[in-house]
Write a protein that binds this DNA or RNA. Structure first.
Lengths: 170, 170
DNA sequence: GTGGCAGTACTCGGATAACCTTTGTCCGAGTCTAAACGG
DNA sequence: CCGTTTAGACTCGGACAAAGGTTATCCGAGTACTGCCAC
């Protein structure tokens, strides 16, 4: 049950983007610089967020990313799903229908395999927790828990690097 | 959050092994034949179960696998961990400590990153559900939910292929 | 007839390759800015 | 001085490699059975 590395980056970026104003924007290269991440690969993750409608993008000079909707309406699950895809983690291959003890009658298998049911229920519990945490929660938690000095450094950095725009053309 | 395919196989095998007597044994090749799985690769999964102490093994003629302890004392989580390893699915790379806004003072980071805390809590919820289901539960569920014809086929198959042993030397 | 012994067949165990997903990179399409030019 | 045009620079977007992990395989180590042989 490995979680892709890009998930961490994407969540951090969303949490940071939650701190900028509605018609402000941060370029991907700038975000990569802040976190010391490979710019091109981070761009790939942000692109996934863009496709899913979590962030809006603007091209050209003074372009960049911003959240597409209020931070309180974006959950951690949204971001994880955007990066990792919608499919379930556990794929039932219907082992019970193979081999000599299988029955050729489809009616004999009205329900999913019991093992799959339990695995999926566990995944649901996992997803439920992620769905209960919004980006706004993350931002608030960060503001409270993070060292005050770092908080100020980040605020300054954002103030310097943010791009102001009249309106998104997204 | 992808779950390895071998997990499914391992759980099926354990559920089946729960149905045999305490001093009976099933060879890996026979299990592979039942489920139509690649024998060598299934052996690798079973080996992982053996290393973790979930199954006992006996070599030589009339050798094979059996559960190392009562089915009610083996959880799905035990099996998943045996196959996938102990490490967490989400690895926090401490992004907050990198880049220009990081602080060089270790004391500034008394707690884990908030994002990691939430991701790990979700994983804990996932693990808690898997830990609440034992192999005995799976076996009982299968006995109830599976089509009666298949149940009989499996019972017959086990009766034919099981190896009886005086005692495990493992 | 019986006990010991060696050969054999069958098991698991660990080292070794193939494939696929994840990770990482690059260059092109699009767009806004701004400067230059003409009126 | 002002409007238009055009060149440029900066952005994201999608196609293209490299690496690591999962999937799959093979051969060797170990063990119990079986048949043979000597006593």
């Amino acid at each position: 049950m490995r979680v892709a590395a890009g998930v961490e980056w994407a969540i951090h970026c969303c949490s940071l983007l939650a701190g900028i104003d509605d018609h402000e924007v941060l370029p991907g290269a700038t975000l990569a610089e802040l976190y010391e991440l490979p710019p091109a690969y981070l761009a790939k993750q942000l692109q996934a967020l863009s496709v899913t409608g979590i962030v809006d993008t603007t091209r050209g000079p003074a372009g960049g990313y911003r959240l597409a909707r209020p931070a309180a309406e974006i959950t951690m699950l949204d971001i994880v799903r955007a990066i990792e895809g919608e499919g379930r983690g556990f794929r039932c291959t219907e082992i019970r229908r193979r081999g000599q003890t299988a029955i050729d009658d489809d009616g004999a298998y009205p329900e999913p395999c019991g093992i799959a049911q339990h695995m999926w229920k566990a995944e649901d519990a996992w997803a439920a927790h992620l769905a209960s945490v919004t980006v706004a929660d993350l931002q608030r938690g960060a503001a409270e828990a993070v060292d005050r000095r770092q908080r100020e450094l980040i605020d300054d950095w954002v103030a310097v690097n943010v791009r102001r725009r009249e309106r998104m053309t997204g």
